[in-house]
Each structure stands twice: as structure tokens, then as C-alpha cells.
């Protein structure tokens, strides 16, 4: 079980680096977005209801990590769909490996990329003057939550791929996911969202994930917020992965 999972994870990672055209946007777009936002929207930190932060950059780093890992999830889905289209998936399925390894390998690779994505944005943040309110321990928390967030988005990307079976459909789902991100507190504090977005944001697990990521950077050690972030992320990843595994099983049972 572990060996095929690790082998498939390694392959997925290696391939990710061989498709720079898919990999680069994961960090390039959120980085540009971050630059534009922090440049242009710095003033929002003065709005009533905006929490006390050092700088808008501190606040927005978590948004960028969320956005980046979400794009990572879409790419994991596309990679899975391309495997299905190319027939490589059939080869995996006729090998004597547990079905779960096929899903876990792909989702696990997204998780490893998630760590790299978190490190990238922390590095950019530090270069441009962000501070880590929670100190060195906070860095580890952010990386861990980056991994979990990537696992969560990755599992849903794979789920969609297993249902859609082709890469263009997976790509078509992408705008929906962006909406999900904006209907959360990933980009703006829930207090500043108008109704009904604020209500949605309150129940949106992505909000908890984003706030867990933001807490150690922008505010400090509020254990509850951080724990809620982990719980939300792990729950999403768990649900996404189980659904993906059952989608794979169902797919094989029906076999088209």
C-alpha cells in the first residue's frame, strides 16, 4: 500500500516539474495578485471593521497561499484527467495495487507541492517586509497548514477528475472554485463582506483554513483559530479523499 502510493506520488511530483507551463501559474498568479492587492488595497486596512494588522501584506499572505494551493488542486485534477485520457490510468488500474493508492499518490503529491508553495509565499512575504507574528513556530504552522490546504484542494480536484474524466471539464470547474474562495474570508475579513456573502463565508470551511493560515502571520498564537484551521483542512481533505476513492471504485464498477 505504502510503496505504490509513494511511487505514484514521486511520479506525480516529477511530472509536475516537467510541465512548467502548469506549475508556474500556481505561484505566478497568486504572486501577481498579491502584488496588485498589497499595492492597491493597502487602504482597506483602515476601513472600520478591518482587524489591527501590521500591514496588508501580512494579511494577504494567507490569501495567496490559499489561492495557490487551490490552483494546485485544479492542476492535480487536470493531471489525473490527462492520465485517464492518455490511457495511463488503465495501466494503473490493471496493476495489482490497492485502488486507494491511485488517489492517495496524486493527492499526496499535491500536499508536497503545498509545502513548497507555503515556503515560496513566506519567502516573498519576508523579502517584502512581512513579519511573522508567531515567530519561528508560526512558520512551521503555516507550512503544515499549507500542506493540509493543498491536500484538501487536491482531493477535490482528483474527485472532479474522476467524475468528469476529461481535462477540459476539470478546467471548466475552475471558476466555480474561485467563487468558493471569494465567498470565504480568504481575501477579506468576513465582517467586511456584505450579505449573503458574509453568511456563506461564516460556514465556508475555506474561511477557517484561511484564518488558520493568517493567524500566526498577522496576529500571533490564538490556539482556537489555528486549531479550527487544522480541523477544517483535515476534514475537507478527509471528505475529498474518501469521495474520490469511492468515485474511483464506482467508476470501475460501472466502467463507463
Amino acid at each position: 500500500m505504502l510503496r505504490p502510493t509513494l511511487a505514484l506520488m514521486r511520479r506525480a511530483l516529477r511530472n509536475a516539474f516537467r510541465r512548467p507551463q502548469f506549475l508556474a501559474p500556481l505561484v505566478v498568479f497568486p504572486s501577481l495578485f498579491l502584488a496588485v492587492n498589497t499595492g492597491g488595497l493597502q487602504a482597506t486596512t483602515g476601513l472600520p471593521g478591518f482587524p489591527e494588522v501590521n500591514s496588508f501584506l501580512d494579511f494577504q499572505l494567507a490569501s495567496a497561499i490559499c489561492q495557490s494551493t487551490m490552483l494546485g488542486g485544479v492542476s492535480a485534477g487536470i493531471a489525473m484527467a490527462l492520465d485517464i485520457e492518455a490511457g495511463f490510468f488503465d495501466r494503473l488500474v490493471v496493476s495489482p495495487i490497492p485502488r486507494t493508492a491511485v488517489v492517495l499518490g496524486r493527492v499526496g503529491a499535491a500536499g508536497v507541492l503545498g509545502a513548497l508553495q507555503a515556503v515560496w509565499f513566506l519567502a516573498i512575504g519576508f523579502i517584502f517586509g512581512a513579519e511573522m507574528a508567531a515567530g519561528v513556530g508560526g512558520v512551521l504552522v503555516v507550512i503544515a497548514l499549507g500542506v493540509i490546504s493543498a491536500l484538501a484542494f487536491g482531493s477535490f480536484g482528483v474527485l472532479i477528475a474522476l467524475r468528469a474524466k476529461n481535462a477540459s471539464t476539470v478546467q471548466g470547474i475552475f471558476p466555480l472554485v474561485i467563487v468558493g474562495l471569494f465567498l470565504s474570508s480568504a481575501f477579506f475579513p468576513a465582517d467586511l463582506l456584505s450579505s449573503p456573502a458574509d453568511v456563506i463565508a461564516e460556514y465556508n470551511p475555506i474561511s477557517y483554513l484561511a484564518e488558520g493560515l493568517r493567524e500566526p502571520i498577522a496576529f500571533g498564537w490564538d490556539a482556537q483559530v489555528i486549531v479550527e484551521g487544522f480541523v477544517a483542512g483535515i476534514a475537507l481533505a478527509g471528505i475529498g479523499t474518501s469521495l474520490a476513492i469511492s468515485a474511483l471504485r464506482g467508476r470501475l464498477r460501472a466502467a463507463r
Binding site: 505514484l8 511520479r11 490511457g87 495511463f88 490510468f89 495501466r91
Partner: peptide, 25 residues
């Protein structure tokens, strides 16, 4: 199994594919 459409991953090298197949088996 060798299916009608070769089930390959064009991004991998031939050796990598065989090593992966060996591991999966």
C-alpha cells in the same frame, strides 16, 4: 496487459516507466 492504445505517460522516460511498473507489481 498491452491495450490497443499504448497506455504510456509521455512525460516519463522509458526507464522510469519500467521502474514504476516494476514497483507497482
Amino acid at each position: 496487459v498491452a491495450l490497443q492504445a499504448a497506455a504510456l505517460d509521455l512525460l516519463m522516460t522509458g526507464r522510469e516507466m519500467l521502474l514504476l511498473a516494476a514497483t507497482l507489481h
